[in-house]
Structure formats: structure tokens, C-alpha cells
Design a protein around this nucleic acid. Structure first.
Length: 764
DNA sequence: GTTCTAGAAC
DNA sequence: GTTCTAGAAC
């Protein structure tokens, strides 16, 4: 059989449908689930589909691209829609298939961009009967293919691209395609998180991880309303109702039922979502933080007035639970005295987590009066928002920030799994931390209302700007136009990266990876030094003392009881003579107690109060250079002993042991002590900061950049030489014991890697 | 940092 | 059944 054709259409022969046929080009590595996707859709769908599979097109065996094209053409002629089931990973591979499109044929891409590990382990399973060798081959094939991966762009000729990075997204795409009747069409555009076409304000994109969130399209929504509401249907369909969890075995009758339910959901979704962008916010700091209501209401009105002309068609709503709320009535009366459009700003009595379901008020963004730890609980608005939003909010929040300083805000896209998203249409929660006037709460300001008012004012600025960034961003993304946001279309353009950093973080920048581009997002939300408790917040959980400033910018962390061993050695090397290789005035050299490679030593700084890279400043430059010199001296000795070794010198961005220590480690990683992913990634991701780079950064900026995001330590396992991915540590170790690929170019530059030249030259 | 171990993955 | 991971305890 050269084609799988399943015709579920009940239409009589010869009577063509009104809708166009679709060519869906699957894109994904072996093991990404392309065939499964097609098969499931074909079983569930009422539309006639043909699957063109290059692997089996030739009487069950692999065929050619030409055969695929021919069969696709004839399937289309027969009135079928077509799946192109081959990898199609680069633009060139899929170009011929895109040309199948025309006035009667839409061409879609469905990208199954799952983690390499997932594809590899599935491929291994499929081919793995012959054991490891075959498994290794499968891994190599997947890795090689993924290197060629180019995500599709609309300008290649696709009318619709669905990009799935997770199983859940695959399921959503599956739902979308399987409910398509013979004449249904899907809206055009890019759907998914990783959009190579998106050129919108990189800074904001970096910040808002999930920029394509299906929410408001701004005032020009009509044109794109269909696409907006449909994607919502997709999301809702995938997660909200039990009966929508589609079984691939469902028959045609239930499909029709499901399709009509889907329509119903769609109209609900439209009601919920296709309205003016609205921010609902509670009064910040006036409840538990006991901020003076008179002063707070002045600030709210002042800030609202300031933002009025930037809002375009968006609205701000001050919400309070109780009807007799003092703050609400104060704000109401003060706003009435100002020139404030009551359509754009008003007060509302109700539960901020049920504004739509109980109050009929549609708000796509709600603000949360958060605590500094950004944790659920505590009571009040914070507790009820976290509770209503479910655990996904806590998770999404944690991805972006671990803590917040008074006067700051953090914008969190709400996962579509959250009940707040599904039931209330809330796409984002903006956490805000206000000034505290309550002596029994953290960061108490005493009675300093000068500071308090400044911080509260900063809060509302951060909150409203965060909201505008969402509105503007989404309007751009969904319309591709910049003229739909009312009087100030360029709010975002006024937002430099620096502004964002200042507004949302002004602190440690963490690194995440996205589509091969390294970008920074704010992880910790630190205020300026003038702000209250700027540094104590992170360093003293539970014991925040507003008056206890640290002078330099470093943060001290709390060290576990095990973590002081190196400190003791550095302070009293004479007591540890047996473990020590060398002592100088500046440093102590010793073997790592649990070496992660054949050669692994530590160069300890003998300097009190210098616990980690974060503490290092300009004044430590000489010391750090001395440590490097000693490290290099030992490296050279080791290389004389064994010319086949390679060495790197560097620091862990967030060490587990206190006392600044330089790792000198050979790159064989041949050690029984290298036991887990964290061990590997701590030496083989950006978490490991090369000593040469650290020195450069101290010279140029007075301090080193830290890349201490936990996610670096849980990244997929990749060979440090050939960059191939491996499903687990034992497999990786077995691979690296044989891999002799040359090291990546970045390591071969600037002396990051030390080795005997003749050794490298002899590499294959 | 390591060790121990439950339970997930194979 | 064994292997492997990840979280808690130290």
C-alpha cells in the first residue's frame, strides 16, 4: 500500500465540498510522533485525508521525494486533504511540498518540535531490537537531523503554522485537526510559542515567555477575531472538559457531536475574550499592609490619570470585595474630580477571581497584591488568586521570578490550564508588591510615608506599564499592525531593554535558552539600593530587616551545614595538611574530594568573606588572576603527565560550598563521582563560568556575570564535544568515553581550553 | 556537596 | 525485574 486513505466523508461521490483541501506538512525528527499524529487525526476526522509517508510509500518501504509529490498531487485531485509524513526539517526539503498549495489548497505546517531526548528514546525503542548499537545509531540520526532543523516561517508559503513544543501542544493540535469537517477551514497565522517570524519588541518577547497568548487583539480585533477565538477553542478544548479529551478511537458520530460542542465553546470563548483589554487591580498595600487610605487613594487617582492617555481602548478597574470599601469610595470621589474617562477607569465591587463568572466583567489581566516571596497563601487577595488560578500560576511565576521587592511588578502569563484562564478569561496575572506599614510584616517602613508613597507610586507605574506591555504586545502580534492601540501606539517603542530591566528586575539576570538564542529574563526582582531591604530580602528568608543594608551589591546566601568545609580549609590550611597540594599567601590548592574527572583540583581563595563568584568585585581582580595563574601552573603539570588531557578552569555560578574556589578539571569526565545531571551540567553549561571570561568581565564591568538559573542544571544531557543529546547519564558517559569529536569552537577560543597542541592536531 | 530511597521509566 | 532520577535529609 503506498498511501493510507481513510475517507470518512458522507458526501456522495462527485459532489465537491465548498471548503479548500489542506496539505499539512508535518515537520519533526524521527520519533517526534508525525505518523502517530496523522493516524490519529485520520481515525477521528470526518474529512477525507491521505497520508503520504516517505518511509512506506514504496510498497511498504522507503521511497523518494518525487513519489511523495506525485501521490500527494493525485490524492488532492481525488478531493482528499493530505498529510506529508516525512521529516521536512529544513526549508529546502519542504519547499516542493509547499508548492502543492494554490487557490483550492491551503498549505499548513504542523511542527512537532519535541525535546531531542524524547525523539531519541522513541526512535531507540522503535529500532532498538538489536540493543545498544542500534540505539546509538538512532540517537546519532536524530541528532544529525536536528542540526538541520529550521522552523518554518509563514513566508515560505504556509498559510498556517502550528508549532508544538510539548505533548500537550501536540494534543491541542491534534484536537484542532481532528474536528475539522470536510468544508471547515482553520484560521491562518502562526500558532505556538516559538515564532521565528515574530519581530515584535524583543525585549518584551524575552520577558513574556508566552507572547502568543490568545487574548485581546485590541480595537482592531474584528479582522482577527476569528483566529483569536479559534485558538482559544483549541486551548480550551485540550484541557477544560472531560469529554474533550479526545480518544483517537472515537467514531464519526461522536466526532460530529464533539465538533458542535466545540462551536459552542468557541462562542463562549469569544464572549470571554474578544472584549476590550481590561486590568482589574486591588488597592495595593491598604489592607494587610495598613497603608493610609487617604494617601493611597491620592496615588491611585494620580497614577490612573497619568496613564489615561496611554491606554488606547484599554480599561483599568479598581476592585474591592466589599461594598462599603473605604478605599473604593475615596478613589471614586477623587477620580470624579479629575478629568478621567469613566469608561476607561471605574471601580467595581466583587471577587477579583470571579469577575466574569459572577460579575459579568471581562478582565484579561488581574493584578495580585503579592508577598515578597511570590508564594501562595497568607490570606487576602494573594491567597485567593493563587487558589483560584491553581498550581500552574505558582509554577509560571516561579519560572520568572523567585521574589519581588516593594515597588515592583512581575507580569506572569497564565498557563491555559489554569481555571482562571478557562473560566474567567484571565491571560495574565501581574504580581505587585506594595510598601508595608504593618510592623508585623516583612519590610516594615516604620512610619516613613515619604518612602511609602514613593514605593506605592512605583507599584502602580510598574503595574500599569506591565499591563500596557501585554496589550500592545498582543495587539501587534495578532494584527501585525501598530495602529490599533489608540492615541499612543508606541508605548512599547519607548520601552528600552534597560527600562524593562529596571522596572521588573534591576537585579540578577538569568539566562534561558529559546530557539538557540540566549536571552535574559528577570529572575529576581530587585529594586534600587534606595529601596527597602534590597538585599536582605533574598539573603534572610523570614527575617527581613528593613534597616540592614549590605553595602556592596552581592547577596549572601544561607549555606548548609556541609558547605563550610572549603572555608575551614582556606582559613586554617595548616590543619588540613594531608589534603593540600599547595599553599601560597593568596590561595590553597587541593584535590576535589569527589573528583568529577581524572584530574580535578580546586584553587581556594584565602580571603575572608569571599564566598562565591557573586561576591567578587573589582578589588578582587588581582586575587582572581592569581588563582588563574596557579590553576594554569597545575594544568601544565598535569598536561606534562598526560598529554592526552584537556582542561578547563572556571567557577560554578552558584556553588554549593562556600569560599570562592576555582575548578581545574580535565575534560574526560571519567569519574565514578560524576553521578547525575546536575554534576554534568554544572561543568558543561553556561553555569560553568570560564576563568578567562570571569577575569575579562571583572576588568570591564567590575564583576562577573552569573548564570545561575536552576534550569541550566536540569538541561538535557549533551556531549561537550559533539553536542549530541543523550537520554540519561550512563548513556552519556558511555558516549563521552568514546567521543573524539573536536571541541566546540567557543571553547577553542580565548584560552578557555588548555591542551597540548600536538594532541589536538592529531584529532580526527 | 553526598547519601539514601521511593517511585518512575524502562 | 533492573535502571535511573530526583527529592529529602544531612
Amino acid at each position: 500500500m503506498d498511501m493510507d486513505i481513510i475517507d470518512n466523508s458522507s458526501k456522495p461521490e462527485g459532489e465537491e465540498e465548498k471548503g479548500k483541501a489542506i496539505v499539512v506538512i508535518l515537520i519533526g525528527a524521527p520519533g517526534s510522533g508525525k505518523s502517530t499524529f496523522c493516524e490519529h487525526v485520520m481515525r477521528a476526522s470526518t474529512r477525507p485525508w491521505a497520508r503520504i509517508c516517505q518511509d512506506t510509500i514504496n510498497k511498504g518501504k522507503a521511497g523518494t521525494k518525487q513519489q511523495c509529490l506525485m501521490n500527494a498531487t493525485s490524492a488532492l485531485k481525488e478531493g482528499n486533504s493530505v498529510f506529508i509524513d516525512r521529516c521536512n526539517l529544513d526549508r529546502e526539503q519542504r519547499a516542493e511540498f509547499v508548492k502543492l498549495g494554490g487557490p483550492q489548497v491551503d498549505v499548513h505546517a504542523v511542527v512537532l518540535d519535541l525535546p531531542a531526548q524524547v525523539c531519541i528514546s522513541r526512535s531507540v525503542k522503535r529500532t532498538g531490537h538489536e540493543g545498544n548499537l542500534q540505539g546509538g545509531k538512532a540517537a546519532a540520526v536524530v541528532n544529525r537531523m536536528l542540526q538541520k532543523k529550521e522552523l518554518p516561517k509563514l513566508n515560505e508559503g504556509f498559510s498556517r503554522i502550528t508549532c508544538c513544543q510539548t505533548e500537550r501542544e501536540v494534543q491541542a493540535a491534534f484536537n484542532t485537526y481532528s474536528v475539522l469537517g470536510p468544508s471547515d477551514m482553520l484560521p491562518h497565522g502562526f500558532f505556538g510559542q516559538k515564532n521565528p517570524d515574530a519581530k515584535v519588541q524583543l525585549g518584551i518577547l524575552k520577558f513574556l515567555k508566552k507572547v502568543e497568548d490568545p487574548t485581546y487583539a485590541g480595537s482592531d480585533a474584528n479582522r482577527d477575531q476569528h483566529s483569536v477565538s479559534t485558538q482559544i477553542t483549541e486551548e480550551i478544548g485540550s484541557s477544560s472538559k472531560g469529554q474533550e479529551t479526545v480518544s483517537p478511537l472515537l467514531g464519526t458520530a461522536s466526532n460530529e457531536l464533539r465538533a458542535s460542542e466545540n462551536l459552542a465553546t468557541s462562542s463562549v470563548a469569544q464572549n470571554v475574550f474578544s472584549n476590550v483589554p481590561t486590568l482589574a487591580f486591588p488597592s495595593i498595600s491598604t489592607a494587610d499592609f495598613q497603608f493610609n487610605h487617604e494617601k493611597a487613594s491620592d496615588i491611585i487617582v494620580e497614577k490612573v490619570e497619568e496613564f489615561m492617555n496611554k491606554l488606547g481602548n484599554a480599561r483599568l478597574v479598581l476592585v474591592d470585595l466589599s461594598k462599603g470599601s473605604k478605599i473604593l469610595s475615596l478613589v471614586k470621589s477623587k477620580a470624579a474630580q479629575k478629568i478621567i474617562d469613566s469608561e476607561k477607569f471605574f471601580t467595581f465591587v466583587g471577587d477579583i477571581t470571579r469577575l466574569f463568572s459572577e460579575g459579568g466583567l471581562r478582565c484579561n489581566v488581574i493584578a495580585n497584591a503579592a508577598n515578597w516571596r511570590l508564594k501562595p497563601g497568607g490570606g487576602g487577595v494573594n491567597a485567593s488568586i493563587f487558589s483560584a488560578a491553581g498550581p500552574s500560576l505558582e509554577f509560571a511565576t516561579n519560572e520568572l521570578a523567585k521574589s519581588l521587592l516593594p515597588g515592583n511588578a512581575v507580569v506572569v502569563p497564565l498557563p491555559s490550564t489554569s481555571p482562571l484562564y478557562r473560566k474567567e478569561g484571565v491571560s495574565h496575572v501581574i504580581h505587585v508588591l506594595g510598601p508595608n506599614m504593618n510592623p508585623s510584616r516583612p519590610n516594615w517602613l516604620g512610619n516613613d510615608y515619604v518612602k511609602g508613597c514613593k514605593i506605592l507610586s512605583d507599584c502602580y507605574t510598574a503595574l500599569f506599564e506591565g499591563f500596557l506591555s501585554i496589550v500592545t504586545n498582543q495587539a501587534r502580534l495578532s494584527t501585525g499592525s501598530s495602529e490599533n492601540i489608540g492615541s499612543e501606539p508606541s508605548v512599547l517603542q519607548n520601552y528600552s531593554e534597560g527600562d524593562l530591566t529596571k522596572q521588573f528586575s534591576d537585579g540578577d539576570q538569568k539566562i534561558k535558552r529559546n530557539g538557540g538564542h540566549e536571552y535574559e529574563i528577570s529572575k529576581k526582582c530587585k529594586g534600587s539600593k534606595d529601596d527597602v531591604g534590597a538585599d536582605t530580602i533574598d539573603s534572610m528568608p523570614g527575617k527581613v530587616n528593613a534597616n540592614d543594608h549590605k553595602i556592596d551589591g552581592s547577596r549572601s546566601k544561607t549555606w548548609g551545614s556541609w558547605a563550610h568545609a572549603l572555608y575551614h580549609i582556606a582559613m586554617h590550611p595548616e590543619k588540613h595538611k594531608d589534603d593540600i597540594l599547595e599553599i601560597t599567601d593568596d590561595v590553597v590548592v587541593l584535590n576535589d574530594h569527589y573528583p568529577k574527572a581524572q584530574r580535578h583540583i580546586l584553587v581556594l581563595a584565602r580571603c575572608e568573606g569571599l564566598d562565591c563568584l557573586a561576591d567578587v568585585r573589582q578589588e578582587h581582580l588581582q586575587l582572581v588572576m592569581a588563582m588563574h595563574a596557579v590553576g594554569m601552573k597545575w594544568t601544565e603539570k598535569f598536561l606534562r603527565d598526560d598529554t592526552s588531557l584537556f582542561f578547563r578552569l572556571g567557577y560554578h555560578s552558584a556553588p554549593s560550598m562556600r569560599q570562592l574556589h576555582l575548578h581545574v578539571i580535565s575534560q574526560d569526565f571519567n569519574s565514578k563521582h560524576l553521578k547525575n545531571k546536575k554534576h554534568w551540567n554544572s561543568f558543561n553549561t553556561a553555569f560553568f563560568r570560564d576563568s578567562v571570561d570571569v577575569i575579562e568581565e571583572i576588568k570591564n564591568h567590575g564583576k562577573a556575570t552569573l548564570k545561575d538559573d536552576d534550569s541550566l542544571l536540569s538541561m538535557e544531557l549533551r556531549c561537550h564535544r559533539c553536542r549530541s543529546a543523550h537520554p540519561n547519564l550512563p548513556r552519556l558517559k558511555s558516549h563521552i568515553s568514546n567521543c573524539s569529536a573536536s571541541f566546540p569552537p567557543a571553547l577553542l577560543q580565548n584560552g578557555r581550553l588548555s591542551f597540548v597542541q600536538s594532541n589536538r592536531d592529531s584529532e580526527p
